[in-house]
């Protein structure tokens, strides 16, 4: 496998698989967040379950590994790609042949990373190591901060853009792309991107005004 992970295609497969894993995680996360609408009791018990269930506890480390792998590999590939064209074009017109999202994965990705750090500090660290009595209160309180909500919504729009390319790209990278169902995968990816971007954002905006 060492040849695999050092080859360009192998690394893309790793990006793809870690990405798909994160895509799945996002759904679970959104599901938990949606319980906010069910009131403090429901959310707190969901949150408690996530914090104590053995499987989830194990998955936490897998998830962390997935994130780290995705980030490190992404940065590594970006550096290699930059090195592959030492002299840039004087005039370039990439918009003529490719979408903005696909060309700027590194930027959307890095901004999302910054948000994740902020997010971990505000929620994960607080809940895990702080003295939080009600997770529900912690979350809804934070959503009362307009600056935080703006950052939050902005981050999820970026994530949506990131996913709009990442979702279908992940399938291509593992070879799951055939004319018959490609448009289906692509549309599903776009729908998923909207779901994530809107789903998370709406929760934040709702609780800001609530």
């Amino acid at each position: 496998m060492s040849g695999f992970s050092s080859s360009s295609v192998g690394r893309k497969v790793i990006m793809s698989l870690s990405g798909l894993f994160l895509i799945t995680f996002l759904l679970v996360h959104l599901g938990v967040n949606l319980t906010l609408f069910g009131g403090p009791e429901l959310f707190n018990s969901a949150s408690h379950f996530m914090a104590t269930n053995l499987v989830i506890q194990v998955m936490q480390y897998v998830l962390a590994a997935g994130f780290i792998l995705h980030i490190i590999m992404g940065i590594n590939l970006e550096l290699k790609n930059r090195a592959a064209r030492p002299v840039k074009y004087v005039k370039n017109n990439p918009a003529a042949n490719s979408g903005w999202a696909s060309r700027n994965m590194i930027y959307t990705g890095l901004l999302i990373l910054l948000f994740i750090i902020l997010h971990l500090k505000d929620f994960f660290v607080e809940i895990k190591f702080g003295e939080v009595t009600s997770d529900y209160d912690l979350v809804t309180q934070l959503f009362k901060n307009p600056i935080y909500v703006i950052i939050y919504v902005f981050a999820f729009i970026l994530l949506g853009i990131h996913l709009s390319h990442g979702f279908q790209s992940a399938f291509t990278s593992i070879g799951a792309r055939k004319p018959k169902y490609y448009s289906c995968v692509k549309n599903l990816g776009i729908a998923y991107s909207y779901l994530i971007a809107l789903g998370f954002s709406i929760i934040a905006i709702y609780f800001y005004f609530a």
Binding site: G3, S8, V9, K12, L77, N81, A84, S98, G99, H165
Partner: peptide
């Protein structure tokens, strides 16, 4: 495997599926 190995040695970048090439 051999062709990809050589491609990597030559210093080409990695595909990120932007689709610009097919256009």
């Amino acid at each position: 495997k051999n062709m990809i190995h050589q491609m990597d040695l030559e210093g080409f970048g990695n595909c990120t599926n932007t689709g610009a090439c097919e256009v």
